[in-house]
């Protein structure tokens, strides 16, 4: 039975700031998002930095609107919309990165948002490791995840990395197991 957003939030809230690999599927995707950016962030009074590498931030925003989720404290680092979104209609809480191959720029935008939210706690959501794996070699992606997680650890932030069940290469899965503090699964209620 799939995990509810509240259940996910409860599990996350029990942890100190850490790096969590979250295994998701199509049918648990939005519950996972809701669990992190709404239930968990609210519970812990955190800002959310949503790295959208799979789906344009605008689509996520549209869904969050339908779910009536408050977006006051949600920021997006979007690496898929550069060519589609002109700077004129870009919402203020969205930062664009030219492409998913510019992993350093994704880190820099996260760094910027953390600096701006000084003093407040943050949760960073990477959606998803598999989307980044389409555009990057597993060596550079491992390096990116490693540095990102270490930076965030030093800043006492939570990071949740979406990993789509059955899609990761063995290399990516091993790396995730190695760099993340633990793995949670949206599909199973108890573990």
């Amino acid at each position: 039975m799939p995990k509810s957003p509240s259940k996910l939030a409860d599990e996350l809230a029990e942890l100190p700031p850490s790096a969590i690999a979250l295994s998701i599927r199509d049918d648990t995707y939005f519950d996972a998002i809701r669990g992190v950016v709404d239930r968990f962030a609210t519970k812990k009074d955190l800002n959310t930095i949503y790295i959208s590498a799979a789906i344009p931030s605008q689509s996520i925003i549209d869904v969050l609107k339908i779910l009536e989720i408050d977006m006051e404290r949600i920021y997006f680092v979007d690496s898929v919309s550069h060519t589609m979104m002109g700077s004129t209609k870009k919402p203020e809480n969205v930062l664009l990165v030219e492409s998913s191959t510019m992993l350093e720029n994704i880190m820099l935008k996260v760094e910027y948002l953390l600096k701006k939210s000084e003093g407040k706690g943050s949760v960073i959501l990477l959606d998803s490791i598999n989307a980044l794996a389409i555009h990057n070699s597993s060596t550079i992606l491992s390096e990116f995840v490693h540095i990102l997680i270490n930076n965030l650890r030093a800043k006492n932030a939570y990071i949740v990395l979406f990993s789509i069940e059955g899609f990761g290469s063995e290399e990516i899965n091993n790396m995730m197991g190695f760099v993340c503090d633990l793995t949670l699964d949206m599909s199973e209620e108890g573990r």
Binding site: L103, L108, E111, E143, I147
Partner: peptide, 14 residues
């Protein structure tokens, strides 16, 4: 950036 210059390591990717 307006928050000042930010730096991250260059990824080598092997």
């Amino acid at each position: 950036t307006p928050a000042g210059i930010l730096l991250v390591p260059l990824l080598k990717g092997g």
